[in-house]
Every structure is written in structure tokens, then in C-alpha cells.
Amino acid sequence: MIPATAHPAPRPATRLDIQLVPALSDNYIHLMRDAATGTVAVVDPSEAAPVVDALARRGWTLDLILNTHHHGDHVGGNLDLKARYGSAIIGPAADRDRIPGLDRAIADGETFLVGACPFTGIDVPGHTRGHIAFHAAEDAALFSGDTLFSLGCGRLFEGTPDQMWRSLTRLRALPGETAVYCGHEYTAGNGRFALTLEPDNADLTARMAAVAALRAADRPTLPTTIGMERATNPFLRADLPALATTVGLAADGDPVAVFAEIRRRKDNFRG
């Protein structure tokens, strides 16, 4: 069980220069450079052109492509970028057959380097059967793809509520200061739904005011933090008795059932 409030600690200094590159209608491609070595990686390039432009503006080249899962809006730029820069492609071992151009398959708990920065793969099935998240513990950064969103989580296209709940609790257990870079700009809509469940959550209310200001200024709402998500994201809070009661289930019941009901309501939410 998590506490009702869980504010993030200040984020430590990072060696990674992480840039958000908007793509398609609401995707974010995450571009990062290791300051020590100059190594550049991109996470989930939905299309090549915005990455090429972002690299050219900075005078960077592209060494690595990281994919969290196989959906086209996360791997669509793989082959064009690999052909242009000779980039190596890293993706989930559990979905190796569906990642275009895959060079290295990463299993749960396996580590790899982006320059001098160590990353660990965390298997987080639920959205798809082979989804992985990339965690840079020393740099307090998590690339969560479509498993954990700011104030939300991914739809269950190939997985079960039990799988997704287990995946989310793994991510929830990371240090609160961990910066979360997810795949889409969904925060405002997710927050409107969250308020239907916890209208009296002061952290959530304050966060939504901040989100409204950011979006009005055409600024991204990412990154969020694990600590902020613990305090405001209903999908990470399904084991709180108050949320169980809100969705009409027993306060001491199975959190997987509560999570499944929250996910069902979100799937049908039109706010």
C-alpha cells in the first residue's frame, strides 16, 4: 500500500541531456546525449524526420535507437534512422520478432550502456505482451513507453489487468525522484478522468492547475516523477481503500479488481 501523498524529492544532477521531440499528433520521441562520451540515443522514434531535424539543429549524430514495444507509433522511424546513421537498435527480448531492425534484445534485469550511462530493462507487459521500460538508476530517469503515462497507463491491448498491475507496481517502487518520460502527451485528459475518482485529492487538483498552465503555453507536461505519480495517478493507487470504495468494490478487496474497474471506466471516459 502506498501513502495517500508521496511528494517527489529533488531530482539529482544527471549526465544525460534529454530532449523531447514532438511527433505525429501526440507522441513524444525522447532524444538523449551522454555528456561524458557524446553518445546519442533516441527512444521510440515514431517517425524519422523530426529526429533528423533535431539532430541537425544540435550537430549530433545518432548511435542508438531504443524501442519499448512494437507499435508503429514507437518504431516507425527505426529503419530510416538506422540506414542514415548506422544506429544500433535495442528492444525487448520478449518482443524481438516485432521490432524492425533489432540488433540487441534486452531481457528483464539486463543492463546496457548509453555512452557511460548504465540502463536496465524492466519487463512491463500489459499494454503489449513484450513491453519493456528502460531505467537509468544513476541518472534518475525512466523511459516508460506506453505502460506508465503521466496520470494514466496504457490500454490493455495484449495483456491482462493482473499483468499491468504488476508492471505498474514495479515502476511505482522506483525512487520518487525518478523522472518519467512516457510516449504521449495525455496528461490533461488523464487528469480529467482522475478527478472523477479523487476530486478531493489536493495534490491532483494542484497538478491539474499546473498542467493547464503548461498546455496553455504549448509546453509539454513531461517529465513527471514517480513520486508525483504515486500521489496523483489513480492507476498506481488501486490498492487504496478509498479508491476501491469509490468504484463500488470492497475496501479490503483485490487491487487487481479495482485496477480493472478503473481501466474499464477510463476506456469509456469521454471527458
Rank of each mutant, 00 (worst) to 15 (best):
R129C: 08
T111F: 09
R237M: 01
D34L: 03
L55N: 04
T245R: 14
D200F: 14
I89G: 01
A83P: 05
A231D: 04
S87E: 03
D162F: 10
A173F: 09
S87V: 00
P175I: 08
P220H: 12
D26E: 13
A23R: 01
M32W: 07
S46G: 15
D203N: 12
E47G: 11
F193K: 12
P223N: 08
F193C: 12
A188W: 14
Y186L: 15
W60Y: 09
L214R: 15
P45K: 04
H69S: 10
V258E: 01
D203R: 11
V180F: 11
R170P: 01
E158H: 12
G130Q: 02
T111Y: 08
R219P: 00
L142G: 01
P22E: 09
H74W: 09
D34I: 03
A137L: 12
A56E: 14
N27L: 06
L24W: 04
P45E: 07
D63C: 04
V21I: 15
A213T: 15
P234M: 07
L79T: 12
D80N: 07
I18K: 05
A136Y: 03
N233Y: 06
L195Y: 10
C117K: 03
T196D: 13
P234Q: 09
S144G: 07
D26C: 10
V180P: 04
R230Q: 08
E185D: 15
T37Q: 03
A36N: 08
L31M: 07
R104C: 06
A41H: 00
A141D: 01
R166L: 11
A107Q: 13
R57Y: 00
